[in-house]
Protein backbone atom coordinates (compact mmCIF):
# COMPACT_ATOMS: atom_id res chain seq x y z
CA UNK A 1 0.00 0.00 0.00
CA UNK A 2 1.32 3.42 -0.99
CA UNK A 3 1.73 5.86 1.79
CA UNK A 4 3.52 8.46 -0.27
CA UNK A 5 3.08 9.19 -3.95
CA UNK A 6 4.77 12.21 -5.50
CA UNK A 7 4.43 12.98 -9.16
CA UNK A 8 6.63 15.45 -11.03
CA UNK A 9 7.39 17.53 -8.00
CA UNK A 10 9.35 20.72 -8.51
CA UNK A 11 10.39 23.34 -6.00
CA UNK A 12 11.66 26.70 -7.08
CA UNK A 13 13.04 29.27 -4.66
CA UNK A 14 13.40 32.91 -5.41
CA UNK A 15 16.77 34.04 -4.12
CA UNK A 16 17.07 37.72 -4.84
CA UNK A 17 16.48 38.05 -8.55
CA UNK A 18 17.63 34.52 -9.21
CA UNK A 19 15.46 31.46 -9.37
CA UNK A 20 16.90 28.37 -7.73
CA UNK A 21 15.48 25.03 -8.77
CA UNK A 22 15.94 22.92 -5.68
CA UNK A 23 13.85 20.11 -7.13
CA UNK A 24 13.33 19.85 -10.88
CA UNK A 25 11.15 16.83 -11.47
CA UNK A 26 10.91 14.12 -8.87
CA UNK A 27 8.46 11.24 -8.86
CA UNK A 28 8.47 8.33 -6.44
CA UNK A 29 6.28 6.17 -4.26
CA UNK A 30 6.93 4.82 -0.78
CA UNK A 31 4.97 1.88 0.60
CA UNK A 32 3.92 1.01 4.06
CA UNK A 33 6.67 -0.53 6.19
CA UNK A 34 9.43 0.52 3.86
CA UNK A 35 12.84 1.59 5.12
CA UNK A 36 14.07 4.21 2.67
CA UNK A 37 17.19 6.33 2.71
CA UNK A 38 17.32 9.53 0.69
CA UNK A 39 20.90 10.38 -0.21
CA UNK A 40 22.70 13.04 -2.08
CA UNK A 41 25.42 15.63 -1.75
CA UNK A 42 24.57 19.07 -0.42
CA UNK A 43 22.62 21.06 -2.99
CA UNK A 44 21.09 17.90 -4.42
CA UNK A 45 17.68 18.87 -3.07
CA UNK A 46 17.38 16.20 -0.42
CA UNK A 47 16.51 18.68 2.33
CA UNK A 48 13.88 20.23 0.12
CA UNK A 49 12.47 16.82 -0.65
CA UNK A 50 12.44 15.96 3.02
CA UNK A 51 10.60 19.19 3.85
CA UNK A 52 8.00 18.43 1.22
CA UNK A 53 7.62 14.80 2.27
CA UNK A 54 7.33 15.98 5.86
CA UNK A 55 4.61 18.47 4.93
CA UNK A 56 6.72 21.31 6.24
CA UNK A 57 6.67 22.83 2.79
CA UNK A 58 4.58 22.51 -0.34
CA UNK A 59 5.91 21.93 -3.84
CA UNK A 60 5.83 24.65 -6.50
CA UNK A 61 4.67 22.15 -9.08
CA UNK A 62 3.51 18.56 -9.07
CA UNK A 63 1.23 16.41 -7.00
CA UNK A 64 1.86 14.95 -3.56
CA UNK A 65 -0.53 12.34 -2.24
CA UNK A 66 -0.04 11.28 1.35
CA UNK A 67 -2.16 8.37 2.61
CA UNK A 68 -4.67 9.16 -0.12
CA UNK A 69 -4.85 12.90 0.68
CA UNK A 70 -3.71 15.62 -1.70
CA UNK A 71 -1.17 17.50 0.31
CA UNK A 72 0.14 19.80 -2.40
CA UNK A 73 -2.77 22.20 -2.11
CA UNK A 74 -3.45 22.01 1.60
CA UNK A 75 -3.64 25.01 3.90
CA UNK A 76 -1.13 25.69 6.65
CA UNK A 77 -3.45 24.34 9.32
CA UNK A 78 -4.22 21.14 7.46
CA UNK A 79 -0.51 20.57 6.98
CA UNK A 80 0.05 21.15 10.69
CA UNK A 81 -2.57 18.55 11.45
CA UNK A 82 -0.93 16.02 9.08
CA UNK A 83 2.49 16.68 10.63
CA UNK A 84 0.97 16.23 14.04
CA UNK A 85 -0.83 12.97 13.45
CA UNK A 86 0.90 11.27 10.54
CA UNK A 87 4.56 12.23 10.65
CA UNK A 88 7.18 11.74 13.31
CA UNK A 89 10.26 13.91 12.89
CA UNK A 90 13.74 13.13 14.11
CA UNK A 91 16.22 15.92 13.47
CA UNK A 92 19.98 16.07 13.37
CA UNK A 93 20.03 18.72 16.13
CA UNK A 94 17.36 16.89 18.16
CA UNK A 95 15.16 20.03 18.29
CA UNK A 96 13.88 19.48 21.79
CA UNK A 97 12.42 22.30 23.86
CA UNK A 98 15.29 23.28 26.12
CA UNK A 99 13.16 24.43 29.04
CA UNK A 100 10.96 21.34 29.20
CA UNK A 101 11.81 17.93 30.59
CA UNK A 102 11.86 14.76 28.49
CA UNK A 103 8.33 13.78 29.40
CA UNK A 104 6.90 17.15 28.42
CA UNK A 105 8.85 17.15 25.16
CA UNK A 106 7.36 13.79 24.25
CA UNK A 107 3.91 14.93 25.36
CA UNK A 108 3.94 18.02 23.17
CA UNK A 109 2.59 16.46 19.94
CA UNK A 110 -0.24 14.91 21.96
CA UNK A 111 -1.03 18.32 23.44
CA UNK A 112 -1.42 19.70 19.94
CA UNK A 113 -3.54 16.68 19.05
CA UNK A 114 -5.85 17.64 21.90
CA UNK A 115 -5.41 14.50 23.94
CA UNK A 116 -6.34 14.56 27.61
CA UNK A 117 -3.75 14.77 30.32
CA UNK A 118 -4.02 11.25 31.69
CA UNK A 119 -3.78 9.52 28.34
CA UNK A 120 -1.06 11.91 27.25
CA UNK A 121 1.12 11.14 30.24
CA UNK A 122 0.56 7.45 29.83
CA UNK A 123 1.46 7.42 26.15
CA UNK A 124 4.49 9.66 26.64
CA UNK A 125 5.78 7.35 29.39
CA UNK A 126 5.22 4.37 27.14
CA UNK A 127 7.15 5.97 24.29
CA UNK A 128 10.03 6.89 26.58
CA UNK A 129 10.08 3.36 27.92
CA UNK A 130 10.34 2.08 24.34
CA UNK A 131 13.54 4.07 23.88
CA UNK A 132 14.86 2.94 27.28
CA UNK A 133 14.61 6.33 28.96
CA UNK A 134 12.06 5.48 31.63
CA UNK A 135 14.50 6.66 34.30
CA UNK A 136 15.24 10.00 32.59
CA UNK A 137 11.72 11.36 32.13
CA UNK A 138 12.15 14.37 34.38
CA UNK A 139 15.48 15.42 32.91
CA UNK A 140 15.82 18.45 30.74
CA UNK A 141 17.69 18.16 27.44
CA UNK A 142 20.82 19.79 28.89
CA UNK A 143 20.91 17.09 31.56
CA UNK A 144 20.96 14.36 28.90
CA UNK A 145 23.70 13.04 26.62
CA UNK A 146 23.45 13.45 22.87
CA UNK A 147 22.29 9.87 22.38
CA UNK A 148 19.69 10.25 25.11
CA UNK A 149 18.44 13.48 23.58
CA UNK A 150 18.04 11.81 20.23
CA UNK A 151 16.16 8.98 21.89
CA UNK A 152 13.81 11.52 23.46
CA UNK A 153 13.31 12.90 19.96
CA UNK A 154 12.57 9.41 18.65
CA UNK A 155 10.09 8.89 21.46
CA UNK A 156 8.45 12.18 20.54
CA UNK A 157 8.25 11.04 16.91
CA UNK A 158 6.70 7.72 17.95
CA UNK A 159 4.19 8.91 20.47
CA UNK A 160 1.46 9.81 17.98
CA UNK A 161 1.74 6.48 16.11
CA UNK A 162 2.53 8.26 12.85
CA UNK A 163 2.32 6.77 9.36
CA UNK A 164 5.97 7.60 8.70
CA UNK A 165 9.02 8.45 10.72
CA UNK A 166 11.11 11.04 8.96
CA UNK A 167 14.67 11.21 10.20
CA UNK A 168 16.95 13.96 8.94
CA UNK A 169 20.61 13.04 9.58
CA UNK A 170 19.63 11.46 12.90
CA UNK A 171 23.21 10.42 13.68
CA UNK A 172 24.87 13.58 12.36
CA UNK A 173 25.57 15.01 15.79
CA UNK A 174 26.43 11.73 17.49
CA UNK A 175 29.60 9.67 17.77
CA UNK A 176 29.71 6.43 15.86
CA UNK A 177 28.73 4.17 18.73
CA UNK A 178 25.85 6.30 19.88
CA UNK A 179 24.83 6.63 16.23
CA UNK A 180 24.78 2.90 15.99
CA UNK A 181 22.47 2.74 19.01
CA UNK A 182 20.04 5.10 17.32
CA UNK A 183 20.18 3.07 14.12
CA UNK A 184 19.44 -0.03 16.20
CA UNK A 185 16.44 1.76 17.58
CA UNK A 186 15.22 2.51 14.05
CA UNK A 187 15.81 -1.14 13.22
CA UNK A 188 13.49 -2.19 16.02
CA UNK A 189 10.85 0.33 14.94
CA UNK A 190 11.12 -0.96 11.39
CA UNK A 191 10.68 -4.52 12.56
CA UNK A 192 7.60 -3.44 14.47
CA UNK A 193 6.03 -2.29 11.20
CA UNK A 194 6.87 1.39 11.04
CA UNK A 195 7.68 3.20 7.81
CA UNK A 196 11.01 4.98 8.05
CA UNK A 197 12.48 7.60 5.76
CA UNK A 198 16.08 8.44 6.46
CA UNK A 199 17.75 11.49 4.97
CA UNK A 200 21.52 11.33 5.09
CA UNK A 201 24.66 11.99 3.15
CA UNK A 202 26.58 9.16 4.84
CA UNK A 203 26.78 6.00 2.81
CA UNK A 204 27.36 3.97 5.96
CA UNK A 205 24.13 5.16 7.56
CA UNK A 206 22.13 4.86 4.35
CA UNK A 207 23.10 1.23 4.06
CA UNK A 208 20.88 0.45 7.04
CA UNK A 209 17.86 1.06 4.82
CA UNK A 210 16.31 -1.38 2.40
CA UNK A 211 16.11 1.11 -0.42
CA UNK A 212 18.27 4.09 -1.32
CA UNK A 213 17.02 6.99 -3.40
CA UNK A 214 19.95 9.07 -4.68
CA UNK A 215 19.33 12.67 -5.65
CA UNK A 216 21.54 14.92 -7.73
CA UNK A 217 20.78 18.44 -8.95
CA UNK A 218 17.12 18.17 -8.08
CA UNK A 219 16.54 14.92 -9.93
CA UNK A 220 16.42 11.28 -8.87
CA UNK A 221 19.71 9.85 -9.97
CA UNK A 222 19.19 6.30 -8.80
CA UNK A 223 16.52 4.39 -6.89
CA UNK A 224 17.89 1.02 -5.75
CA UNK A 225 17.04 -1.82 -3.44
CA UNK A 226 19.88 -2.82 -1.10
CA UNK A 227 20.46 -6.51 -1.19
CA UNK A 228 22.89 -6.82 1.68
CA UNK A 229 21.87 -4.16 4.11
CA UNK A 230 23.53 -3.32 7.36
CA UNK A 231 21.52 -4.29 10.42
CA UNK A 232 22.42 -2.28 13.49
CA UNK A 233 22.73 -4.28 16.68
CA UNK A 234 21.95 -2.69 19.97
CA UNK A 235 24.92 -2.56 22.29
CA UNK A 236 24.80 -4.84 25.26
CA UNK A 237 25.29 -2.65 28.29
Amino acid sequence: MNIITIEHIAKIYQVGTEEVQALRDVSLTIDKNEYVAIMGPSGSGKSTLMNILGCLDTPTKGLYTFTGKHVSDMTDNDLASIRNKEIGFVFQTFNLLARSDALHNVELPLIYAGIGKEERRERAREALTKVNLEDRMDHRPNELSGGQRQRVAVARALVTNPSIILADEPTGNLDTKTGEDIMALFETLYEQGNTIILVTHEEYIAEHAKRIIRLRDGLVEKDEIIETRRVAQPRQI
Partner: peptide, 14 residues
Protein backbone atom coordinates in the same frame (compact mmCIF):
# COMPACT_ATOMS: atom_id res chain seq x y z
CA UNK B 1 13.65 28.02 16.53
CA UNK B 2 11.27 26.92 19.27
CA UNK B 3 8.35 28.08 17.15
CA UNK B 4 9.79 26.00 14.31
CA UNK B 5 9.92 22.91 16.53
CA UNK B 6 6.37 23.44 17.74
CA UNK B 7 5.11 23.92 14.21
CA UNK B 8 6.99 20.88 12.93
CA UNK B 9 5.31 18.63 15.45
CA UNK B 10 1.90 19.98 14.64
CA UNK B 11 1.17 23.30 16.37
CA UNK B 12 -1.38 25.20 14.31
CA UNK B 13 -1.17 28.94 13.73
CA UNK B 14 -3.88 29.56 16.27
Amino acid sequence: HEIGIRKAIGAKRS
